[in-house]
Design a protein around this nucleic acid. Sequence first.
DNA 1: AATGAAAGGATTAAGCC
DNA 2: GGCTTAATCCTTTCATT
Lengths: 211, 211
Amino acid sequence: MIDDTDIQILECLVEDARHSYTDIAEVVDLSPPAVSDRIDRLRESGVIRRFTVELDRSQLRDGVHVLVTLSASTSAVDSVYSAVCDASSVEHTFMTADNTVIFSTRVRGDRIRAAIDDIVNFSRVDSYDVSIIDTAKWSPTIGGTEFALSCDECGNTVTDEGRSEQIGDNQRHFCCSSCLHRFRERYNRIEDDVDAPEKTTIGSDDDSWSL
Amino acid sequence: MIDDTDIQILECLVEDARHSYTDIAEVVDLSPPAVSDRIDRLRESGVIRRFTVELDRSQLRDGVHVLVTLSASTSAVDSVYSAVCDASSVEHTFMTADNTVIFSTRVRGDRIRAAIDDIVNFSRVDSYDVSIIDTAKWSPTIGGTEFALSCDECGNTVTDEGRSEQIGDNQRHFCCSSCLHRFRERYNRIEDDVDAPEKTTIGSDDDSWSL
DNA sequence: AATGAAAGGATTAAGCC
DNA sequence: GGCTTAATCCTTTCATT
């Protein structure tokens, strides 16, 4: 799936999406076509949504930037959320686990209420609150816990306490030593099977995995 | 300053920052070097903050996405805000006009409180609230009131009620008909001056303008 | 802002492990 | 399957008008 090299590539692109494949290739120690292939795969799999540009909208004189918080009933919240997403003037959108939709938008200072009503019909909303945004920032920076690998055994996030080891041809990542040992055990059994190819059932229940 | 062509270029880049200058040049009807020059200018002036990539972070299994709302005293809010901005795990950041800082971040589910304390020391904060984000979106799309032009006469934002007209060689934009007429009047006076070049003082007070 | 030449980067295909 | 190398083609840049 996604490996360390992919993450390095993503880091480069987040920093500057116009970095040349040649530059990236040097950083990750691959050839330019290999980088190109990987980026294509990341695009197709949807990890990369799009290449875009971050603008300083305040320089474009585009109205007052407001943050709108609204709550809706469980039945209405999905349609409210998609209405917000579809509105072209909306920039940031969040839906929290408790049916609150939060979004930022630019509106002309003299018709804030009307603009919000345009975006999401007030009749569908239980309550709402508007605050004026003083400054806002979007940082796609990669760092800290942001880009975690998934455990090759159980799928959980790999944290600082995780383990990483070369098994067979690949560098593998695990969330804990148990998963590492479990994976290695299975790997060795497979290896044995290759030597003596009587098919045996490996593992139990619905555990699924692949090398 | 920024004209229609710049806005068209920005639209292209927002849609796909890897569009080639040649492609953009065709859309906006200029030569590739001209597009390159304009993009350089937009970068230098800070309108374009950076080229980046939009990622589907949910595919990277990177912890729980939470929205943190905190309020601080007027004296502390700036340092709290900059601490939040500097934190590498923080993605979206807002500061509202009433000293509320709102940000989204990814944290491991079992240490949300500790993670937030790392980002912004709790001692500097009056109160805070955390909600789990179900879905989030960032749409740099251009549309609606987002990209407003500034009036070529008074500098105000040009809205739907504005006027647009070809004067001389350029398409000009105005926030209202008064500005259009005022501009056209001056333009004609300049034209007359060119025919009969005795220099006269144009306009009054500190009004400044350029063709 | 356009042109044309030179440099630099992307993409393709063939071949390797 | 994923990688590299080398050739081709396209894009960007720079000097000039």
